[in-house]
Amino acid sequence: MKSVLNALRRVSLTTLVVLVAVWAGYKLWDYYMNEPWTRDGHVRADVVPVAPDVSGFVTDVLVKDNQPVRRGDVLFRIDRARYEIALKQAEAVLLGKGAQLDEANADLKRYSALTPDVVVSKQRLDQVIAAQGEAQAAYDQAVADLNLARLNLERSEVRASISGVVTNVDLRPGTYLTTGKGVMALLDSDTLRVEGYFEETKLPRIHLGDPVSVRLLGADHTLRGTVESIAAGIEDRDRSSGSTLLANVNPTFNWVRLAQRVPVRIALDPAMRSELVAGATATVEVLGLPAHGGPSGTGEARDGSHPSVCRAVQAAFRARPQCG
């Protein structure tokens, strides 16, 4: 009898520990496989590739590498000489065309005063009217050319199209630039954000407005943000279009496959943006409540203005196995 009791105790103690281990292992698996957090996150920003609108030698570079600039600030200048000459040319042409137009107008006025078919032939009068029209067109053309020359001269100063920071500036005076060739990056500081590349299997637990904690690689504190948006689409890698524009679907389908990753955009507090470097690696953890009410749950999370209360609620939910 004693040995039976002893055996029962041995089995039950081991079974208890094993059951606890199974539960703990399940929680661990859930945390690593299903909880919405990823180490595959990056800081991103919108970048304008600055390129000149006219060709020529660079005469002045007015910005330094990594210098903050405001919209409209001159970044660099392209040699103006050619465009100044072009402007002078256009002005001269305009004067000439103006003189021709005056003459044509005077002719037209003179001939119009004469009686047609008596003093002056109908043909001659038509010629004068046509000549005046041509002179007017040539004059308008010269005005347009002048404006173009003026625009080119103006565009020889390359300005910042947005406020931000110019980076990767290694432009030196004397460099010959051609139209449209990008020479430096203008990073829009207002668009700095974090994008987490979440496996598609984790998306059901991510909702718009969910609070997010972001840890930059090497930083010893977390940044706070919210889920701003989830990418509407990613490329279908198994499908392309053939030359006939018919669908070309990859005939192999893998037995083993990996979850694809979908970018989730995280909006950060503007005060936290200053320390961000676009491209830096970040770990992103969505702190949303478990999906029990869909979008209504996100509303609660957004309204929860007390972070500590929010955390406590999360901890309470976390203790229970999640159904989502």
Binding site: T14, V20, G25, L28
Partner: peptide, 13 residues
């Protein structure tokens, strides 16, 4: 088995 269960509990903990 007991040791393995203990290990899983500790690593999860």
């Amino acid at each position: 088995l007991f040791n393995f269960a203990l290990y899983v509990c500790l690593v999860a903990g």
